[in-house]
Design a protein around this nucleic acid. Structure first.
Lengths: 347, 347
DNA sequence: CGTAAAAATGCAAACGTTTTAAATTTCAGT
DNA sequence: ACTGAAATTTAAAACGTTTGCATTTTTACG
């Protein structure tokens, strides 16, 4: 069958009007007679006219797309958060008639090169950058280019302003500490990652700040570092903390996957959570509700954040605000059953 | 800063060549002198030239994009599979230099209208359609339009050929039955959904076929139907099956979320899985590994399927094959601890 | 009815590329 | 040096829009 797509020229011809008039009529220009506008709208609707994106983009310089570069991942690793994030972005964009373009970094190609391509080919009017690294060449590039973007996450030392939305991990980790301290815990463990992402510092610093704020010299904090994607190494790191002669009574993990590993290994070592050990995570992934006894964690509401990011980015694109847009979202505690009073006897 | 993007005209001028020659040289045409080709390639690389997508699309009629319409979802529901699916599509596309465009259906707008817009605006060269409904207007539209697409899933009665890739749910459910039958189970339960999707029939029919194949008249099958997204109603439906005077000894759920509900409600009713009740799901979502005692399920390897779908679609776009491309992927059993021998005594 | 202003419409250029057809240059053979 | 063919390069049109400017039509008013 292959029905052809109707063009503005054809629509104009069928209405016996010029292309210009039809274009303006559809755009709702006041200068076109109302009667004509209605006639054109009616005909366009009936003919199922849809303007060609490429042509429109070419002349207007605006594509109506927002770009997201998919981080490169190992063969069997998918971010639990990607689906939520993309859904949220979509929701935020659709109300403004924008769409999302997802560019994947091929193995071996850097995420930066894909980003450059997206930007410089004019495919997108703005981009979203996630997983901010300690030294992030993407932000440097976008800033130099003056290209609209919003970062999900922050740099540690921002010598330049940029638009970002971040989850307040520092606050959450402080909250976790306060709650555990009030439950009698004094010996804490933090499981963090070796990957050079800024959020590991923000969260750890939040924890340290809360400890300092409390001013109790009897509080101790052990830190153990695991590579992010190597499951075996992760287990070893967790066990280093769990199997030591003097283990913490409360462990805070940088994110839920790590916390779940802690709970699994604790169970394997015959420890009862939360009686012998309290565990708190971050992210509230689906599995956390199911892993016994139910992981206490923080919900970052990724979907809503993504939605907000989309809104911010569209504002940046449309209005080019002088001052950077920034938003810090406070995650909410999801209290399940993996935390409790500190055990009386130290092992 | 706002560095400008270089255009073909500028590049040509700097090389003292015509636009035509530079364009051809970059495309690698044999007719351009090798020396020139190299000179141009060098200059382009150095200037960081990236061809403008809109212009290229306009003249060539090919956008280099593949479209996916995000299904409309409830406020707090995100498909666990979306992240994997998108990752797989991205992987499959990137090797051919294609990108993914994600269009979201705004609330109130039908998925079909968004699809039409994507197709008719020329944003994409082909689309992926997921979640095939029993009566699916999207497939009808795409077929009438003669627009390249690949469906993830199948129609029940295809009076026309189309490209699809599907997970062989029928086979999996047959396999589940055989395994449970061999473990002594004779009274089965199936938890299905009321949403009019084709996969519910395919899976249920696979189960029924396996029962028929066995030819044992003592085998019984109870079926209970739950709405897909209403958690409360789902719990009620599951309990209808669990709390009856004569409950099945083995329950097969249409997908993992339902199976997890079965396990939760079974635990609440004081039943031990798998001693009192065997439960088998489908999808192998992350939570299934954590929900005690570990859900036995089937892994559909969504990511690889999506990758294959991308490959198929790119073939369809490039080669317009006469016969439809179809692939049936057999899911693999992930045997965890939620199934076991049938209990001796019937309750 | 004539005229000027206002309202409505149209012409043509532009966006950055690809491609057809034509023009120019190079080269081998005499 | 001349010719014709081969090799290389170029001019110009086209893709489907938007938009600055010009033109035509309508309206209001004397």
């Amino acid at each position: 069958m292959t029905t052809r797509v109707i063009t503005l020229k054809e629509l104009a011809a069928s209405l016996d009007l010029s292309i210009t008039t039809v274009s303006r009529a559809l755009a709702g220009h006041e200068q076109i007679a109302l009667k004509t506008r209605e006639r054109v709208a009616q005909a366009a609707r009936q003919a199922g006219y849809v303007p060609n994106t490429a042509a429109r983009t070419l002349v207007s310089g605006r594509s109506g797309f927002v770009g997201l570069v998919l981080p490169i991942r190992g063969p069997n690793l998918v971010d639990s958060f990607l689906g939520e994030f993309v859904t949220g972005l979509g929701e935020g964009l659709v109300s403004h008639g924008a769409d999302l373009i997802l560019a994947t970094a091929a193995f071996g190609h850097s995420e930066l090169s894909v980003l450059r391509h997206v930007v410089e080919s004019g495919r997108a009017d703005g981009v979203v950058v996630t997983r901010i690294a300690e030294v992030d060449e993407r932000l440097a590039y976008l800033r130099e280019r003056g290209f609209p973007f919003v970062a999900h996450g922050r740099l540690l030392d921002s010598d330049f302003g940029y638009n970002w939305l971040d989850t307040d991990g520092a606050h959450a980790f402080g909250e976790a500490f306060d709650m555990l301290y009030d439950l009698g815990h004094r010996h804490f463990g933090l499981v963090t990652i070796s990957e050079p992402m800024t959020f590991r510092h923000l969260r750890q610093d939040g924890l340290a700040a809360a400890i300092a704020r409390r001013g109790d010299p009897s509080v101790r904090l052990d830190v153990v570092t695991a590579p992010r994607f190597d499951h075996e190494a992760r287990i070893q790191a967790v066990n280093r903390m769990l199997k030591g002669p003097d283990r913490p009574t409360a462990i805070v993990a940088l994110f839920d996957e790590l916390a779940l590993t802690v709970m699994e290994e604790a169970a394997r070592a015959g420890l009862d959570v939360p009686r012998d050990l309290s565990v708190i995570g971050f992210d509230n992934i689906a599995a956390s509700a199911y892993a016994p006894p139910g992981l206490t964690t923080f919900d970052a509401s990724i979907r809503q954040c993504a939605r907000a990011i989309a809104d911010m980015l569209l504002t940046v694109i449309a209005d080019k605000p002088a001052a950077p847009l920034t938003r810090l979202i406070r995650p909410t505690l999801v209290a399940r059953a993996s935390h409790g009073p500190a055990p009386q006897t130290r092992s």
